[in-house]
Design a binder for these strands. Structure first.
Length: 592
RNA sequence: GGCCCCGUAGCUCAGCCGGAUAGAGCAACCGCCUUCUAAGCGGUAGGUCGCAGGUUCGAAUCCUGCCGGGGUCGCCA
């Protein structure tokens, strides 16, 4: 039950009937007006700008927006759930609901529990959405920055699925190109080391200890068989083995964060030639046939010229036809494909697999790449598939307000795994989402495990545990009381009269609207902020029970009021658990 | 130099497909509590929403130009 969308529909119906009387056009776009909670609670429960939005269209028959508002308000006042509808200011309509509406909301929550808030009808998402996230190079362990993209993508995928979309979580393995060759050479050294040689790792290769295991694995598989081979012979098998080892490690790191992708897509497969033609070649040829790829020269970049700049003819994609600033090269000077060329083939694969929306999660340092990729997807799908690129900003690791010192020693950095092991999954996931994706994030290792109000993770989890504790106490006071959500739907909810109780019910009633907007905007952080606010409403009402015992949720003298309040508390646990599940954060029954 | 992101209270940040008197946490200040409804509570103060124009009945929100910070700019991925 979403009271906001319900009233949006009710107001649309009122506008329809005014239109039917000939005093408004029949063609109004109802998505233009909103029904939202007023900023000031004194204005009532709902507010709408419908009369002002359609002021222009109403001009012929209504002298000003207020007149239209008066007519809409009059019709609203006749609705059974409305206590009062009045016009304010230039034409706002403030609606005060009957208290029974919030009882209805709680009953709806109790009936659906964790399914409550799933968008229905107009707000529900349709179609197949591919969310591509992490996509870290398989050349080493993940660091904290990767973790942010990983958590963001995972939570977004949860949210989109909850909102009704058919979601695929995908990882693009960058297992082609020079970096994985470097990986292979580094792993080969570790292989020789595993066979007893003393090695020195030259500049330019990966020095990290994490490759030792890969070297040992290769030694186990090939024995001394690769030692006297030339690089051209050992490179491929060593590369394969090293990539497999790195991907196993990355999957393991992701699993520690409760993240599992459904599809791992290998870039290498796009480069493999079948009958002399790779998938990349095919897509380039196709675009060339459509006149979207040509051979030409690019103007040098403005400002300072790269020293090795040479003007030459190259293979270019006409991305300027699709909103990019300059056409983009598809071939390097040695004739091999650029990363962009492979990415074109990759995104074409997603389009061919039938997705209607593509979401890519990238680090902010790839911002300059967004326009060309959007242009490519537009070209490849004839503007039918939408690409939304979400950029995640850097994570700054802190400990007690001081930056965590990163050792300068090559290959030694704070890995994602170390952080997860130190503070736990819940803290990492919640804090990574407690910030907008394009804002830099300070992650304080000390703060996130603090048991205090200053720590948002704790504050939200504590609200859930506290609510569960209240349920346990109610059961102790009334052992025969049925506290299942279904049974509580029959509780005497009209007894919920205190303003703190009403405020909590109102906050719970916001949840469906929050989910809809967060899903539409691809912004899971809104859930984290909402949960914090919801917890805050609950805690502050709970605290009133200290001085005024009659407000406590459990009152052993009053079975009926306890029952009604349990309906409220259990509704709260449903919503806290639901939102936490979308974020991938646990909702514990007690704090330890 | 081109492009992208950011600029909101002392600090860290929400709010941004336009809507009423711009919010939260921390810090500050003032009270209260010393408790198992525990991991404190309540309140006060604090803002030319970077600057200047524009669109609009209405702009933190949209447009333009500046200023400041960050990112990025063929042969890295």
């Amino acid at each position: 039950m979403n009271i906001f969308s319900a009233f949006h529909a009710a107001i649309a119906a009122i506008l329809d009937s005014i239109a039917a009387s000939g005093r408004l056009p029949e063609t109004l776009d109802y998505s233009r007006f909103v029904v939202e909670p007023p900023k000031d609670a004194a204005h009532g429960d709902l507010a709408t700008n419908a009369a002002m939005v359609f002021a222009k269209e109403a001009k012929a028959n209504f002298a000003n927006p207020r007149q239209l508002a008066v007519e809409i308000a009059a019709a609203l006042a006749d609705l059974p759930d409305v206590a009062e509808a009045e016009v304010a200011g230039p034409g706002f309509i403030n609606i005060r609901l009957k208290p029974s509406v919030y009882a209805d909301v709680l009953r709806a929550v109790l009936n659906d529990c964790e399914a409550y808030g799933r968008p229905q009808g107009r707000g529900a998402l349709a179609g197949r959405i591919n969310v591509e996230y992490v996509s870290a190079n398989p050349t080493g362990p993940m660091h904290v920055g990767h973790g942010r993209g990983a958590v963001f993508g995972d939570a977004l995928a949860n949210l989109l699925a909850f909102a009704g979309a058919e979601v695929t979580r995908e990882y693009y393995i960058n297992d082609a190109g020079a970096q994985v060759d470097v990986l292979a050479r580094s792993a080969f050294l570790r292989y020789r080391e595993a066979l007893g040689e003393t090695i020195a790792i030259p500049e330019g290769l990966y020095p990290g200890d994490y490759l030792k295991a890969a070297g040992e694995a290769i030694a186990k598989q090939y024995g001394r068989g690769l030692l006297d081979k030339s690089e051209s012979e050992w490179l491929e098998p060593v590369k394969r083995a090293a990539i497999d080892a790195m991907m196993a490690m990355i999957r393991d790191d992701l699993a520690a964060l409760d993240i599992a992708h459904e599809v791992f897509f290998s870039e290498r497969t796009l480069h493999e030639k079948i009958n002399g033609l790779s998938q990349i070649d095919k897509e380039i040829n196709e675009l060339r046939a459509r006149g979207l790829v040509y051979d030409g020269r690019l103007p040098p970049p403005k400002g300072q010229l790269p020293d090795d700049w040479e003007d030459r003819e190259q293979t270019l994609f006409r991305s300027t036809d699709f909103g990019d600033d300059v056409d983009r090269p598809l071939k390097k000077s040695d004739g091999s494909n650029t990363y962009f060329a492979a990415d074109i083939a990759y995104h074409k694969s997603k389009i061919d697999r039938g997705y209607t929306t593509l979401v890519d999660i990238w680090g902010a340092d790839h911002g300059g790449y967004v326009k060309r990729m959007s242009a490519a997807v537009a070209a490849l799908s004839d503007n039918k598939v939408a690409l939304d690129v979400k950029l995640c900003q850097l994570v700054k690791l802190m400990r007690g307000g001081e930056p965590v010192k990163m050792s300068k020693r090559a290959g030694d950095f704070v890995t994602l795994r170390e952080v997860v092991d130190e503070v736990g999954v819940d803290a990492v996931r919640f804090m990574m989402l407690y910030r907008k994706n394009d804002a830099p994030l300070e992650f304080d290792l000390a703060k996130v495990i603090e048991q205090s109000k200053d720590n948002a993770v704790f504050y939200v989890q504590y609200a859930h545990a506290r609510a569960k504790s209240a349920v346990r106490q109610a059961l102790a006071a009334f052992p025969d009381l049925d506290l299942t959500p279904q049974a509580l739907a029959g509780a005497p909810l009209e007894l919920l009269q205190d303003e703190g109780e009403i405020a909590l019910a109102k906050a719970i009633a916001q949840y469906p609207r929050l989910i809809e907007s967060a899903a539409a905007a691809h912004e899971p952080h809104r859930i984290a902020f909402y949960l914090y606010d919801l917890a805050s409403v609950f805690h502050s009402h709970w605290n009133k029970g200290k001085d005024r015992p009659q407000l406590r949720f459990v009152n052993s003298d009053d079975r009926n009021s306890t029952s009604a309040r349990m309906a409220l508390v259990v509704s709260l646990t449903c919503v806290l658990a639901s939102g936490s599940r979308l974020l991938g954060v646990s909702a514990p029954d007690e704090m330890r």
